[in-house]
C-alpha cells in the first residue's frame, strides 16, 4: 500500500475543485470536436478503455488495492453483452446492462475471496481467478472460443437511435463514458469515498476507529468491477465483437499501464493514460511487435521518473488537483 500512496501525495488541499471543473470542461470540449479530425472508431475505443482505466483507478488509486485481474470483468461483460445482443436480440442498452450486471456478480464473488488478503497476495488471487475464467471462456461453447462472438448487431438505442450510424454510436459512447466518469467522481467525493481514502492511508487505524474495512473494500471492488463491465460491454457493441483478447491477462496489465501512465489517484489521469496507450497501439501498429517494447520502456520510465504519471506531474507542476 505504501507503493501507491507516495505518488498520491500530489493531491492538493481542499477548496480547489474549480480545477476539476475547468479540466472537465476542457475534456468535454475536446470530445465534442475530436470526431471532426480523429477517426470516430478510434475515439470510441479510447473512451471504452478510458472508462476501464477510471474503474481500475477507483480501486488502486483510492483504496490502494492492486487488482491484476480486471480483464475478467471487462472481458466477461463484453461476452455477455455481445451474446445478449446477438442471441437474445436485446437492444443495446439492455445488452450493456446485462454485461455490467455480469461484471458486478463476478466482482462480488472474486472480491469476497480476494479482499481477505493484502498486497501481492491480493493481486495474485485476482489474477488466478481471472485466469480460471479465461480458460472457461476458451472452453465454453457460447463464447465461440478462438473466434469469439462476431457480427454483434449494434441495434437501436432505446428503439430511437440507429447505432449503425458512426456519429450516433459515438455520441452514445461519449454519453455513457461521461455519465460513468461523473458517477466515479461522485463516489470518490462521497462520505463512502472518504472512508476509502482513510483505508488506503492507514487501514489499521480505520479499523480502530470502528470501520469494518473489509466491507468497504468489497463495495469498492464491486463498483470498480461494474464500471469495468460497462466499459467492456460498450466496447462489444461498438466493435460488434467479443473476443478472448479482452478477457486475457495482458488486458489486465494494460489497464495498470494506462492508470500508471496517466497518474494513479488522479481524476483525469486514467483518461489521459488510456488515450496515450491506445494511440500508441494504433499509430505505431506498423512497427509491429516493437509496440510492446515501446510500451515496456514507457512503463519503466513512468515508474522510475514520472511516478505521478502525466496528469499527476502536470497537477504537481501547476499546484492544483486534477
Amino acid at each position: 500500500m505504501a507503493v501507491t500512496s507516495a505518488p498520491i501525495a500530489a493531491a492538493g488541499r481542499q477548496g480547489q475543485s474549480w480545477s476539476h471543473v475547468i479540466a472537465f470542461v476542457v475534456m468535454v470540449g475536446f470530445f465534442a470536436i475530436a470526431p471532426l479530425f480523429i477517426y470516430p472508431l478510434f475515439l470510441m475505443k479510447a473512451l471504452c478503455f478510458a472508462l476501464f482505466a477510471c474503474a481500475f483507478n477507483l480501486l488502486l488509486g483510492y483504496v490502494g488495492l492492486l487488482s491484476f485481474g480486471h480483464a475478467l470483468y471487462f472481458g466477461w461483460a463484453s461476452y455477455l453483452s455481445a451474446y445478449a445482443a446477438k442471441a437474445w436480440g436485446f437492444p443495446p442498452e439492455f445488452a450493456i446492462l446485462t454485461g455490467a450486471a455480469t461484471a458486478a456478480v463476478l466482482g462480488l464473488i472474486a472480491g469476497s475471496i480476494a479482499i481477505r488478503r493484502q498486497g501481492i497476495y491480493f493481486a495474485m488471487i485476482t489474477l488466478a481467478l481471472a485466469q480460471m475464467m479465461y480458460f472457461f471462456a476458451v472452453q465454453a461453447p457460447f463464447t465461440g472460443g478462438e473466434d469469439g462472438i462476431q457480427s454483434v448487431p449494434r441495434g437501436w438505442l432505446f428503439g430511437l437511435f440507429d447505432l449503425r450510424d458512426q456519429m450516433t454510436m459515438y455520441i452514445a459512447v461519449l454519453t455513457i463514458f461521461l455519465a460513468c466518469f461523473l458517477l466515479i467522481y461522485r463516489i470518490i467525493n462521497s462520505p463512502f469515498g472518504e472512508v476509502l481514502k482513510a483505508i488506503r492511508e492507514n487501514e489499521q487505524r480505520a479499523i480502530s476507529l470502528g470501520y469494518k474495512t473489509d466491507r468497504y473494500k468489497l463495495m469498492a471492488f464491486v463498483l470498480s468491477a461494474t464500471f469495468a463491465g460497462v466499459a467492456g460491454a460498450t466496447k462489444a457493441i461498438v466493435f460488434q465483437l467479443a473476443s478472448l483478447t479482452d478477457v486475457d491477462w495482458p488486458m489486465s496489465g494494460e489497464v495498470v499501464l494506462m492508470a500508471l501512465v496517466g497518474g494513479l489517484g488522479t481524476v483525469f489521469g486514467p483518461v489521459a493514460g488510456a488515450f496515450i496507450v491506445v494511440a500508441m497501439q494504433n499509430y505505431l501498429a506498423q512497427v509491429g511487435q516493437w509496440v510492446l517494447v515501446i510500451q515496456g520502456i514507457i512503463f519503466v520510465l513512468c515508474v522510475l521518473l514520472f511516478r505521478r504519471g502525466v496528469v499527476g506531474e502536470l497537477a504537481h507542476y501547476l499546484r492544483i488537483r486534477l
Binding site: 458517477l183 461522485r186 463516489i187 467525493n189 462521497s190 462520505p191 463512502f192 469515498g193 472518504e194 472512508v195 469494518k212 466491507r215 468497504y216 463495495m219 463498483l223
Partner: peptide, 9 residues
Amino acid sequence: ASFDFWRSK
C-alpha cells in the same frame, strides 16, 4: 456505516 457513495461529501 458510510456506504452512501451516491451522496456528496
